[in-house]
Every structure is written in structure tokens, then in C-alpha cells.
Design a protein around this nucleic acid. Structure first.
Lengths: 149, 149
DNA sequence: GATAAATAATTGCCTTGACAACTATTGCTG
DNA sequence: CAGCAATAGTTGTCAAGGCAATTATTTATC
């Protein structure tokens, strides 16, 4: 049931798009299976905050390549659910520090496993060498596209 | 300025996500540069209709892996701009055939080049062998994720 | 040290897409 | 052929994200 490159035109764009959607869907369904009602972006935000530690909304938005305005509202929801706190920065009164609450930290540990499982499944049947190759090629593609045309 | 796989954790998910966004952005900016005010999905829809010929909204939605409801409104806009027509199917009064108008057909030829340019740029500095490899690996990833977990 | 430019976060507005409900028509099954 | 399920397309509703404008504060400049 696999697709043969020789007989299929290389539709990089649609391939990438579909993989992205499947990744999101897989992760979200893995999350709900574990009883967590989280969207994909909420998952990524919590993950970042867990691994990188507290940071400002601006930093988080940059790290996630995500819109600051959209992030504000996403943080609102996570704060309402008591997964994080917005703490004023004593040095800069414009800035905030987002920190995970204890409850957010335990959540983080649990949802990490969900992401791992999906990543594992995505790379099934691929050798270490192939994974490295894939990463190299994808990084190259990204670099190419990031060049101002 | 390239990223070394050995020193970077393999974040397949974020890599794929960023490439997708860059692809969309690159194509849209290529389109506007040529004077076409089209969104990415409008571009893909026109492209499909051009290469595959007339089909029903349902077929198009399936081919694009896109929501039928959203597609209805997208087709509305393209029809208003006179790029396509909805023709009733004589055999099945529920169904429609979407066909490109002459103006839609000439548009299609022009925007095709935009997509080509972006695809070329994305694969810059990659050999034929590497492109095939990339396609194979991505297809495998997609297949893995499509398995019902 | 006053003023202008830059930065941080938020808000409003708008577009896109997902999903479910709805209508019209067709096909199936007894 | 009557009734019922399936299908085609559309619509309403909602959530997510992009973008520009806004407010508050800080930094740079003269």
C-alpha cells in the first residue's frame, strides 16, 4: 500500500501539508485518549514552557513561530485552567513571565509522552541513518524557503 | 547557517509545520508578485481543476483533503470572479460539475509557474537521488500516521 | 532631562477552516 | 413501489489565527 516515487509526481507541498495535518490530528487524538482536552497549539506551548522554563509571551510566540495576539488568548485559556501563571517582571513593567503552575508541570510530564508516541510512530520502519537523512533534507528545504526570494 | 542534525534534537513536528507555513507564504507572495490576489487554497483548487478537468465539489474536496463546507464558500468566491462555473449534472440533480471558464483556464496556466518556482527553490541544492529519498521517507511517514492508532 | 522611537502585551476585526445540521435527490430493500 | 438509508451540496455556528491599532513602559537621542 506504499507509494512508489517513480510513478508519482513529487508533490512536496501537498505531502508536507498532509503530514502536518496528520501529525496534529494524531497528537490531539492521543491527548484525548489520555483524557486531556488540549488543542495542538496548547500542547506545544505547554511543552515549550516545560522544557525551556519560564519566559515572556513574546519569547514564547517567537519560539513557536506563532502570532502574539493569538497566543495571548491561548494563554488566557491555559491560565483559566490553572496550568500557568502570568507573573509581572519586576525589572520591566511591560513584560510578563509565564510560569507553569505545579498542576501545569504535572500535566506537562504526562502530555510529553503523547507527543513521543506519535513521533515514534511517524518514524516507524526508518533506520537511524534514514532519520538523519530526512532531518538533513528537511532542514535544507526550510533554509531554501527562508531565503528572501 | 545550516543546522547540524547531530547537535539538534529531531523535532519532526515543528520542522514539518514550519516548512508548510513557508511553502504557503512563498507561494502566496509569488502569486501577489505576479499580480494575482489568490490565497493558497484557491491556488490549489484552481490547479487541481486545471490539471484534472471538471469535477464535482465533493470530488475536489476529497482530492484536496479539504472540508466540503469550506470549499463551497471558496468556490463561491472563485465563481464570483468568473474563474469557474457550477454546471448542474443532467444525470444527478443533486450533483454539480465545476468547470474552469476560459478566464480561469488562462489564470491556471499563469499560476502554475508560480508553484513551480517555489517547488524548485525548495529543492535547491538537492540531487535527484536526495529528492527521491526525501519523497520516499515522507511517504513512509504519512503512511505511518494514517494507520488508525 | 525631555522627547521620540522602540518594545511588550493586549484587543478588535476579519478570514479561514472544522463540524454538525439541513434540504434535495438518489439508490436500496422489503 | 413505499419507505429508508445514503449521498450531494449548502448553511450556520464556532474556534483558531493573522494583522493592525492601542496602551503602557522603556530606551535612545538630542
Amino acid at each position: 500500500m506504499s507509494v512508489n516515487p517513480a510513478t508519482t509526481p513529487f508533490q512536496l507541498c501537498s505531502l508536507i501539508g498532509r503530514i502536518r495535518n496528520e501529525l496534529h490530528a494524531n497528537i490531539e487524538q492521543e491527548l484525548t485518549r489520555q483524557g486531556f482536552e488540549l488543542g495542538f497549539t496548547q500542547y506545544v506551548a505547554l511543552k515549550k514552557l516545560g522544557t525551556e522554563g519560564p519566559m515572556t509571551p513574546g519569547e514564547l510566540a517567537r519560539l513557536l513561530h506563532h502570532n502574539p495576539g493569538a497566543l495571548t488568548r491561548l494563554l488566557d485559556k491555559l491560565e483559566q485552567q490553572n496550568y500557568l501563571r502570568r507573573v509581572p517582571d519586576p525589572a520591566d513593567r511591560r513584560a510578563l513571565r509565564i510560569e507553569l503552575t505545579p498542576s501545569g508541570r504535572t500535566l506537562w510530564k504526562r502530555i510529553n509522552a503523547c507527543g513521543e508516541r506519535v513521533a515514534q510512530r511517524a518514524l516507524d520502519h526508518s533506520t537511524d541513518k534514514e532519520r538523519t537523512q530526512l532531518q538533513t533534507l528537511l532542514n535544507r528545504v526550510l533554509e531554501n524557503l527562508r531565503q528572501p526570494a
